[in-house]
């Protein structure tokens, strides 16, 4: 049994309007050092057995949209 996390992020070339709102809000709280914030999502799954190729296929077929997003896989344990 493995816990796998798939991190999905918007491609850097695309405007993340929700992330920009977070940037603005952090700056208003005085966190001036924040120059940019981008929001992604993490999908944590328990799989048994763990097969990296199959998790990659999940990312390609459903978890991320290749037109707008990138993803990476992390095995948590």
């Amino acid at each position: 049994m493995s816990t796998v996390r798939v991190y999905v992020t918007l491609k850097p070339s695309l405007l993340d309007s929700a992330g920009r709102t977070v940037t603005d809000s952090l700056q208003k709280l005085g966190f001036d050092e924040v120059k940019d914030a981008r929001i992604g999502k993490v999908i944590e799954m328990v799989v048994d057995p763990y097969d990296e190729a199959r998790v990659r296929e999940m990312g390609e077929r459903l978890l991320a949209n290749p037109v707008i997003e990138n993803f990476r896989i992390e095995v948590a344990g």
Partner: peptide
């Protein structure tokens, strides 16, 4: 778009 029958994608409006 998600089904791949049309190109591109739709994202959160620019003004949120």
């Amino acid at each position: 778009c998600e089904a791949g029958l049309l190109p591109g994608a739709l994202l959160l409006n620019q003004n949120q």
